[in-house]
Nucleic acid binder design. Structure first.
Lengths: 158, 158
DNA sequence: GTTGAAATGCTGTGTAC
DNA sequence: GTACACAGCATTTCAAC
Protein backbone atom coordinates (compact mmCIF):
# COMPACT_ATOMS: atom_id res chain seq x y z
CA UNK A 1 0.00 0.00 0.00
CA UNK A 2 1.74 3.14 -1.15
CA UNK A 3 -0.29 6.27 -0.54
CA UNK A 4 2.16 9.16 -0.85
CA UNK A 5 4.98 6.70 -0.51
CA UNK A 6 8.25 7.62 1.11
CA UNK A 7 10.87 5.98 3.25
CA UNK A 8 9.09 5.83 6.57
CA UNK A 9 10.36 7.91 9.44
CA UNK A 10 10.36 5.30 12.10
CA UNK A 11 10.47 7.98 14.73
CA UNK A 12 7.21 6.44 15.87
CA UNK A 13 7.82 4.84 19.21
CA UNK A 14 5.84 2.57 21.47
CA UNK A 15 4.10 5.48 23.16
CA UNK A 16 2.93 6.81 19.80
CA UNK A 17 1.62 3.36 18.96
CA UNK A 18 -0.34 3.28 22.19
CA UNK A 19 -1.81 6.67 21.39
CA UNK A 20 -2.70 5.61 17.85
CA UNK A 21 -4.20 2.38 19.06
CA UNK A 22 -6.35 4.18 21.60
CA UNK A 23 -7.47 6.83 19.12
CA UNK A 24 -8.30 4.09 16.66
CA UNK A 25 -10.58 2.54 19.24
CA UNK A 26 -12.12 5.82 20.30
CA UNK A 27 -11.29 9.07 18.61
CA UNK A 28 -13.36 11.14 21.00
CA UNK A 29 -11.32 10.34 24.09
CA UNK A 30 -9.96 13.45 25.81
CA UNK A 31 -6.24 14.18 25.92
CA UNK A 32 -6.49 14.20 29.67
CA UNK A 33 -7.95 10.69 29.88
CA UNK A 34 -5.61 9.34 27.25
CA UNK A 35 -2.70 10.71 29.22
CA UNK A 36 -3.90 9.02 32.38
CA UNK A 37 -4.35 5.70 30.61
CA UNK A 38 -0.88 5.57 29.14
CA UNK A 39 0.89 7.38 31.95
CA UNK A 40 1.85 10.57 30.17
CA UNK A 41 1.06 14.18 30.90
CA UNK A 42 -1.80 15.82 29.07
CA UNK A 43 0.52 18.32 27.40
CA UNK A 44 2.79 15.58 26.10
CA UNK A 45 -0.16 13.64 24.67
CA UNK A 46 -1.38 16.76 22.91
CA UNK A 47 2.07 17.48 21.48
CA UNK A 48 2.43 13.92 20.21
CA UNK A 49 -0.99 13.87 18.59
CA UNK A 50 -0.38 17.19 16.87
CA UNK A 51 2.91 15.83 15.65
CA UNK A 52 1.27 12.66 14.33
CA UNK A 53 -1.27 14.76 12.45
CA UNK A 54 1.46 17.01 11.04
CA UNK A 55 3.48 14.03 9.84
CA UNK A 56 0.41 12.56 8.16
CA UNK A 57 0.34 9.45 10.35
CA UNK A 58 -3.13 10.43 11.51
CA UNK A 59 -5.17 11.22 8.44
CA UNK A 60 -8.58 11.81 9.88
CA UNK A 61 -10.85 11.44 12.89
CA UNK A 62 -14.01 9.81 11.64
CA UNK A 63 -17.13 7.92 12.58
CA UNK A 64 -18.22 4.42 11.63
CA UNK A 65 -21.87 4.42 10.66
CA UNK A 66 -23.99 1.29 10.29
CA UNK A 67 -25.05 1.37 6.64
CA UNK A 68 -28.34 -0.50 6.95
CA UNK A 69 -29.53 1.96 9.57
CA UNK A 70 -29.26 4.83 7.16
CA UNK A 71 -31.00 3.04 4.34
CA UNK A 72 -28.04 1.49 2.57
CA UNK A 73 -28.98 -2.10 1.88
CA UNK A 74 -26.71 -3.08 -0.97
CA UNK A 75 -22.96 -3.15 -0.80
CA UNK A 76 -20.71 -4.72 -3.40
CA UNK A 77 -17.15 -5.15 -4.56
CA UNK A 78 -16.33 -4.57 -8.21
CA UNK A 79 -13.34 -5.69 -10.20
CA UNK A 80 -13.04 -3.32 -13.11
CA UNK A 81 -10.80 -4.13 -16.01
CA UNK A 82 -9.64 -0.98 -17.78
CA UNK A 83 -7.43 -0.37 -20.80
CA UNK A 84 -4.12 0.74 -19.30
CA UNK A 85 -4.06 4.17 -20.92
CA UNK A 86 -7.45 5.03 -19.40
CA UNK A 87 -6.77 3.73 -15.94
CA UNK A 88 -6.04 7.10 -14.32
CA UNK A 89 -8.97 8.75 -16.03
CA UNK A 90 -11.43 6.07 -14.96
CA UNK A 91 -10.04 6.00 -11.42
CA UNK A 92 -10.41 9.75 -11.07
CA UNK A 93 -13.99 9.71 -12.32
CA UNK A 94 -14.92 6.84 -10.03
CA UNK A 95 -13.29 8.42 -7.00
CA UNK A 96 -15.67 11.34 -7.39
CA UNK A 97 -18.78 9.17 -7.05
CA UNK A 98 -20.43 9.24 -3.66
CA UNK A 99 -21.40 5.60 -3.85
CA UNK A 100 -17.76 4.58 -4.22
CA UNK A 101 -16.33 4.17 -0.74
CA UNK A 102 -12.98 2.75 -1.67
CA UNK A 103 -10.98 2.35 -4.82
CA UNK A 104 -7.61 0.76 -5.35
CA UNK A 105 -5.22 -0.03 -8.17
CA UNK A 106 -4.37 -3.70 -7.85
CA UNK A 107 -2.16 -6.36 -9.35
CA UNK A 108 -4.03 -8.97 -11.37
CA UNK A 109 -6.17 -8.88 -14.50
CA UNK A 110 -8.75 -6.43 -13.15
CA UNK A 111 -6.74 -3.41 -12.28
CA UNK A 112 -9.31 -1.51 -10.26
CA UNK A 113 -10.88 -2.87 -7.12
CA UNK A 114 -13.80 -0.87 -5.88
CA UNK A 115 -16.28 -0.96 -3.06
CA UNK A 116 -19.66 0.67 -3.55
CA UNK A 117 -22.73 1.25 -1.39
CA UNK A 118 -26.31 1.71 -2.60
CA UNK A 119 -29.81 2.16 -1.26
CA UNK A 120 -31.00 -0.84 -3.23
CA UNK A 121 -30.38 -2.94 -6.33
CA UNK A 122 -32.02 -0.39 -8.53
CA UNK A 123 -29.63 2.32 -7.47
CA UNK A 124 -26.72 -0.03 -8.07
CA UNK A 125 -27.99 -0.95 -11.48
CA UNK A 126 -28.28 2.73 -12.34
CA UNK A 127 -24.73 3.33 -11.29
CA UNK A 128 -23.50 0.42 -13.39
CA UNK A 129 -25.41 1.15 -16.58
CA UNK A 130 -25.44 4.93 -16.50
CA UNK A 131 -21.97 5.55 -15.10
CA UNK A 132 -19.51 2.70 -15.01
CA UNK A 133 -20.34 0.93 -18.28
CA UNK A 134 -20.16 4.14 -20.24
CA UNK A 135 -16.72 5.21 -19.08
CA UNK A 136 -14.09 5.20 -21.80
CA UNK A 137 -11.59 2.36 -21.39
CA UNK A 138 -13.74 0.12 -19.21
CA UNK A 139 -13.42 -3.39 -20.64
CA UNK A 140 -15.20 -5.55 -18.10
CA UNK A 141 -16.80 -5.38 -14.70
CA UNK A 142 -17.47 -8.11 -12.28
CA UNK A 143 -19.55 -7.56 -9.22
CA UNK A 144 -19.82 -9.49 -5.98
CA UNK A 145 -22.55 -8.59 -3.59
CA UNK A 146 -22.03 -8.57 0.11
CA UNK A 147 -24.12 -10.96 2.15
CA UNK A 148 -22.68 -10.57 5.62
CA UNK A 149 -20.09 -8.42 7.29
CA UNK A 150 -17.85 -10.34 9.68
CA UNK A 151 -15.36 -7.60 10.37
CA UNK A 152 -14.60 -4.17 9.14
CA UNK A 153 -11.41 -2.45 10.12
CA UNK A 154 -11.89 -2.82 13.85
CA UNK A 155 -9.11 -3.85 16.15
CA UNK A 156 -6.16 -3.08 13.93
CA UNK A 157 -3.04 -3.95 15.87
CA UNK A 158 -0.26 -1.38 16.03
CA UNK B 1 -25.04 -5.26 3.54
CA UNK B 2 -26.85 -6.81 6.44
CA UNK B 3 -25.04 -6.43 9.73
CA UNK B 4 -27.61 -7.14 12.41
CA UNK B 5 -30.34 -6.70 9.86
CA UNK B 6 -33.74 -5.38 10.75
CA UNK B 7 -36.37 -3.22 9.20
CA UNK B 8 -34.78 0.19 9.44
CA UNK B 9 -36.32 2.78 11.70
CA UNK B 10 -36.37 5.65 9.33
CA UNK B 11 -36.77 8.01 12.21
CA UNK B 12 -33.52 9.47 10.97
CA UNK B 13 -34.25 12.91 9.67
CA UNK B 14 -32.29 15.49 7.73
CA UNK B 15 -30.80 16.96 10.88
CA UNK B 16 -29.51 13.55 11.95
CA UNK B 17 -27.98 13.13 8.52
CA UNK B 18 -26.20 16.45 8.83
CA UNK B 19 -24.86 15.42 12.21
CA UNK B 20 -23.71 12.04 10.88
CA UNK B 21 -22.11 13.62 7.87
CA UNK B 22 -20.23 16.11 9.99
CA UNK B 23 -19.10 13.47 12.46
CA UNK B 24 -17.97 11.31 9.56
CA UNK B 25 -15.76 14.16 8.37
CA UNK B 26 -14.47 14.98 11.83
CA UNK B 27 -15.36 12.95 14.86
CA UNK B 28 -13.54 15.26 17.25
CA UNK B 29 -15.72 18.29 16.61
CA UNK B 30 -17.33 19.65 19.78
CA UNK B 31 -21.09 19.48 20.31
CA UNK B 32 -21.09 23.24 20.64
CA UNK B 33 -19.44 23.85 17.27
CA UNK B 34 -21.55 21.20 15.58
CA UNK B 35 -24.65 22.89 16.95
CA UNK B 36 -23.54 26.25 15.61
CA UNK B 37 -22.85 24.81 12.18
CA UNK B 38 -26.21 23.18 11.77
CA UNK B 39 -28.24 25.69 13.77
CA UNK B 40 -29.18 23.58 16.75
CA UNK B 41 -28.54 23.98 20.47
CA UNK B 42 -25.67 22.07 22.08
CA UNK B 43 -28.10 20.14 24.27
CA UNK B 44 -30.14 19.00 21.29
CA UNK B 45 -27.03 17.93 19.37
CA UNK B 46 -25.86 15.90 22.32
CA UNK B 47 -29.25 14.25 22.78
CA UNK B 48 -29.38 13.31 19.11
CA UNK B 49 -25.86 11.90 19.06
CA UNK B 50 -26.51 9.82 22.17
CA UNK B 51 -29.66 8.58 20.53
CA UNK B 52 -27.80 7.65 17.34
CA UNK B 53 -25.26 5.72 19.38
CA UNK B 54 -27.99 3.96 21.33
CA UNK B 55 -29.80 2.94 18.16
CA UNK B 56 -26.56 1.59 16.70
CA UNK B 57 -26.48 4.06 13.84
CA UNK B 58 -23.14 5.32 15.10
CA UNK B 59 -20.95 2.28 15.72
CA UNK B 60 -17.68 3.86 16.64
CA UNK B 61 -15.59 7.00 16.66
CA UNK B 62 -12.29 6.09 15.11
CA UNK B 63 -9.11 7.39 13.52
CA UNK B 64 -7.79 6.83 10.01
CA UNK B 65 -4.10 6.05 10.14
CA UNK B 66 -1.80 6.08 7.12
CA UNK B 67 -0.53 2.49 6.93
CA UNK B 68 2.83 3.16 5.29
CA UNK B 69 3.73 5.59 8.04
CA UNK B 70 3.45 2.89 10.67
CA UNK B 71 5.45 0.37 8.70
CA UNK B 72 2.67 -1.41 6.83
CA UNK B 73 3.84 -1.72 3.27
CA UNK B 74 1.79 -4.58 1.93
CA UNK B 75 -1.95 -4.60 1.64
CA UNK B 76 -3.97 -7.17 -0.29
CA UNK B 77 -7.43 -8.48 -1.02
CA UNK B 78 -8.06 -12.19 -0.79
CA UNK B 79 -10.85 -14.23 -2.26
CA UNK B 80 -11.12 -17.36 -0.19
CA UNK B 81 -13.14 -20.29 -1.38
CA UNK B 82 -14.36 -22.40 1.53
CA UNK B 83 -16.41 -25.59 1.76
CA UNK B 84 -19.86 -24.38 2.81
CA UNK B 85 -19.99 -26.29 6.07
CA UNK B 86 -16.76 -24.68 7.25
CA UNK B 87 -17.58 -21.14 6.22
CA UNK B 88 -18.58 -19.87 9.65
CA UNK B 89 -15.65 -21.58 11.33
CA UNK B 90 -13.12 -20.14 8.90
CA UNK B 91 -14.70 -16.69 9.06
CA UNK B 92 -14.55 -16.64 12.83
CA UNK B 93 -10.93 -17.69 12.90
CA UNK B 94 -9.97 -15.12 10.29
CA UNK B 95 -11.84 -12.34 12.03
CA UNK B 96 -9.61 -12.84 15.05
CA UNK B 97 -6.43 -12.17 13.10
CA UNK B 98 -4.97 -8.71 13.57
CA UNK B 99 -3.81 -8.49 9.98
CA UNK B 100 -7.37 -8.98 8.73
CA UNK B 101 -8.95 -5.55 8.52
CA UNK B 102 -12.16 -6.54 6.82
CA UNK B 103 -13.95 -9.76 6.05
CA UNK B 104 -17.21 -10.33 4.22
CA UNK B 105 -19.37 -13.16 3.07
CA UNK B 106 -20.04 -12.56 -0.61
CA UNK B 107 -22.01 -13.92 -3.51
CA UNK B 108 -19.90 -15.59 -6.18
CA UNK B 109 -17.60 -18.60 -6.24
CA UNK B 110 -15.24 -17.32 -3.55
CA UNK B 111 -17.45 -16.85 -0.59
CA UNK B 112 -15.10 -14.88 1.64
CA UNK B 113 -13.65 -11.55 0.67
CA UNK B 114 -10.91 -10.34 2.94
CA UNK B 115 -8.59 -7.40 3.23
CA UNK B 116 -5.30 -7.84 5.02
CA UNK B 117 -2.38 -5.61 5.94
CA UNK B 118 1.22 -6.66 6.52
CA UNK B 119 4.61 -5.20 7.30
CA UNK B 120 6.08 -6.82 4.20
CA UNK B 121 5.74 -9.73 1.79
CA UNK B 122 7.38 -12.05 4.22
CA UNK B 123 4.78 -11.38 6.88
CA UNK B 124 2.03 -11.92 4.32
CA UNK B 125 3.56 -15.18 3.17
CA UNK B 126 3.71 -16.34 6.76
CA UNK B 127 0.06 -15.55 7.26
CA UNK B 128 -0.89 -17.44 4.11
CA UNK B 129 1.18 -20.55 4.65
CA UNK B 130 1.01 -20.82 8.44
CA UNK B 131 -2.57 -19.69 8.97
CA UNK B 132 -4.87 -19.46 6.00
CA UNK B 133 -3.77 -22.50 4.01
CA UNK B 134 -4.00 -24.75 7.01
CA UNK B 135 -7.55 -23.88 7.97
CA UNK B 136 -10.01 -26.73 7.58
CA UNK B 137 -12.36 -26.19 4.65
CA UNK B 138 -10.25 -23.69 2.73
CA UNK B 139 -10.30 -24.81 -0.89
CA UNK B 140 -8.56 -22.00 -2.71
CA UNK B 141 -7.18 -18.54 -2.16
CA UNK B 142 -6.50 -15.83 -4.62
CA UNK B 143 -4.62 -12.74 -3.66
CA UNK B 144 -4.45 -9.35 -5.30
CA UNK B 145 -1.91 -6.90 -4.01
CA UNK B 146 -2.65 -3.24 -3.70
CA UNK B 147 -0.55 -0.88 -5.77
CA UNK B 148 -2.20 2.45 -5.18
CA UNK B 149 -4.99 3.78 -3.04
CA UNK B 150 -7.26 6.21 -4.86
CA UNK B 151 -9.93 6.52 -2.25
CA UNK B 152 -10.81 4.95 1.04
CA UNK B 153 -14.13 5.60 2.68
CA UNK B 154 -13.86 9.35 2.64
CA UNK B 155 -16.70 11.62 1.59
CA UNK B 156 -19.55 9.15 2.05
CA UNK B 157 -22.71 11.01 1.20
CA UNK B 158 -25.64 10.77 3.61
C1' DG C 1 -37.37 21.51 20.78
C1' DT C 2 -35.27 26.22 23.45
C1' DT C 3 -32.44 29.11 27.03
C1' DG C 4 -30.00 29.85 31.26
C1' DA C 5 -27.23 28.64 35.15
C1' DA C 6 -23.83 25.99 38.05
C1' DA C 7 -20.38 22.56 38.74
C1' DT C 8 -17.06 20.17 36.76
C1' DG C 9 -13.82 19.06 33.43
C1' DC C 10 -10.98 19.93 29.11
C1' DT C 11 -8.03 22.75 25.95
C1' DG C 12 -4.57 25.94 24.60
C1' DT C 13 -0.90 28.56 25.99
C1' DG C 14 2.67 30.05 28.71
C1' DT C 15 6.18 29.58 32.47
C1' DA C 16 9.69 27.16 34.84
C1' DC C 17 12.28 22.97 35.67
C1' DG D 1 9.69 15.12 28.84
C1' DT D 2 7.07 17.08 33.87
C1' DA D 3 4.39 20.28 36.81
C1' DC D 4 1.69 24.24 37.59
C1' DA D 5 -1.25 28.02 36.53
C1' DC D 6 -4.74 30.69 34.05
C1' DA D 7 -8.22 31.98 30.82
C1' DG D 8 -11.56 30.42 27.89
C1' DC D 9 -14.46 26.73 26.36
C1' DA D 10 -17.05 22.47 26.55
C1' DT D 11 -19.85 19.08 28.87
C1' DT D 12 -23.25 17.45 32.06
C1' DT D 13 -27.16 18.04 34.41
C1' DC D 14 -30.53 20.77 36.23
C1' DA D 15 -34.82 23.66 35.93
C1' DA D 16 -38.15 26.37 33.41
C1' DC D 17 -40.45 27.37 29.18
Amino acid sequence: MFPDYHIPNLDIDEIDKKILSRLHENSRISYTDLGKEIGLSRVAVQARINNLIEKGVIEKFTTVINPTKIGIHVSAFFNVEVEPQYLEEVAEQLAKEHCVTSLYHMTGPSKLHMHGIFKDNHEMENFLTKKLYSMRGVVSVDCQILIKRYKSRMGMKL
